[in-house]
């Protein structure tokens, strides 16, 4: 039988969160509809793998369904969901790549990752960053979070966050410059 969603229209998210907290599945489905694009895009920025990103996003929403009762302030649902997303990504990363030193920025592969004339793809440029700097960059530029907020969320020292963002930005800028130079040379 075809499933017909309840039309929530422009109902306030906090109200829908309240309904979801009481176990209303339709309300939770509405939250998934409203937030899926944001979470899926965020996960794609983190992991540079569309399928993995969708699997992780699904896991984020599953966690949200399980623990939404613990959310005390319905108007903080977005921040709470983002925290779940970051934690889900960190858990996945630590479980699958625990040896790699995420605190180091290896500059050796910049040229290989950004050949002249390469179509500039933000996700590809981000993929050239190690995990921790990439996470900090995404949270800063994609989510507009301050360094203090990122430090609190990722449990990294504030100085490390600042360093990751500064060096990550420099590296992205180099890739951008390489691309622009490549495109200019290609056009001549």
């Amino acid at each position: 039988m075809a499933h017909k969603p309840i039309p929530y229209g422009k109902a306030a998210e906090a109200m829908i969160v309240g309904l979801a907290r009481s176990g209303d599945r339709e309300a939770f489905a509405e939250l998934v509809r409203r937030r899926q694009s944001w979470i899926r895009n965020l996960m794609r920025r983190f992991c540079h793998d569309d399928h993995l990103a969708d699997d992780l996003a699904q896991l984020v929403f599953l966690q949200a369904w399980r623990y939404i009762r613990s959310l005390q302030q319905p108007d903080r649902f977005g921040a709470w969901l983002r925290r779940l997303a970051v934690n889900t990504w960190l858990q996945h990363y630590r479980a699958h790549d625990p040896i790699r030193n995420a605190d180091q920025l290896d500059d050796t592969d910049v040229a290989a990752e950004s050949p002249a004339g390469m179509a500039l793809d933000l996700d590809r440029a981000l993929a050239s960053l190690p995990e921790a700097p990439r996470l900090c960059i995404v949270l800063s530029y994609n989510e507009g979070m301050t360094h203090e907020e990122i430090a609190e969320l990722t449990e990294l020292p504030a100085g490390t966050v600042k360093s990751h963002i500064r060096r990550g930005t420099e590296r992205l800028r180099r890739i951008l410059t390489d691309y622009n130079n490549g495109a200019r040379n290609h056009g001549q």
Binding site: R25, F28, V32, R33, Q36, N41, A57, Q58, W65
Partner: peptide, 17 residues
């Protein structure tokens, strides 16, 4: 940023719940 809204993903999430 590009929109990623599809019913299939939502249905998968709700099925997993």
């Amino acid at each position: 940023e590009h929109p990623l809204d599809d019913q299939v993903f939502g249905d998968k999430v709700m099925a997993s719940t």
